[in-house]
Design a protein around this nucleic acid. Structure first.
Lengths: 125, 125
DNA sequence: ATACAATGTAGAGTTAGCTCTAGGTCAAGC
DNA sequence: GCTTGACCTAGAGCTAACTCTACATTGTAT
């Protein structure tokens, strides 16, 4: 199935402007109809989902661009892409660990507030 | 102990420009010496550490600003601050869960690449 | 006393990642 | 066959969070 940019926009939950911007940045390269209009494919759908995953996990556009370039070249770049993903996974792992530590500290801070507030309530009696 | 902006900068690992920017944004309000120079306290140290935690966990400056204002008012805002932290904790929790899901998907993608690469290596024999 | 390093302010510049505007083309419904 | 809405490009504008510049002043070491 193929999609116009409007359809693709609602489908992916990305603004039309954003999609054109992604194309300018060479993240995605939809086909064009004779009249010059973009034609997104089913393959573009899964690709954009993956782009979103990379973005959501903090990969900058420039890096995704690099990945996209490898992808466009084809199978000869499989290892390059895998290496990128492995590095990215390591970074993501660290990020998660870091956030979990922050979460713990935040928890104790909240506990502390809780105690302070109860103490204040006491003295007001 | 008190610190000049230079000392405080190395101590907190934040640039001098950044510290002045944070002050302009009302995140931190160090004392001033007679001659107008900033004088950071021990209390400022722990406060900036907390600001960094909030930032690292994705809280925008505007929000930290709000928290800082509550903090400056004093004990009467304990519950307000606790509420902010509780909301923030929930958001952080969601973020962690989301990232963990992404991590899993990334793992399977890497596994897939691994298999593909091995398959290609086979056919080359 | 002099130089030079640290600090001060005000405001400009930067980067990432969009988001929007202007001005034009094109296609489908009435 | 005309209008209306979707689409096109090029480029401007926006927001967050810094980061830097210019220029003045002050503190410290020789």
């Amino acid at each position: 199935m193929n999609y116009t940019i409007g359809e693709f926009s609602t489908l992916t939950n990305l603004g039309i402007h954003t999609l054109r911007y992604y194309e300018k940045e060479k993240l995605i390269s939809p086909e064009r109809k004779e009249n010059g209009r973009r034609l997104y494919s089913e393959n573009d759908v899964s690709w954009i989902q993956f782009i979103k995953r990379l973005k959501d996990t903090g990969m900058p556009i420039k890096e995704i661009q690099k990945y996209a370039t490898f992808r466009a070249i084809g199978d000869s770049t499989l290892t390059d892409r895998m290496e990128m993903l492995i590095k990215h996974r390591a970074a993501l792992n660290e990020e998660i660990v870091k956030l979990q530590e922050h979460l713990e500290k935040l928890d104790s801070k909240i506990d502390y507030y809780q105690a302070e507030i109860e103490k204040n309530a006491q003295t007001e009696k």
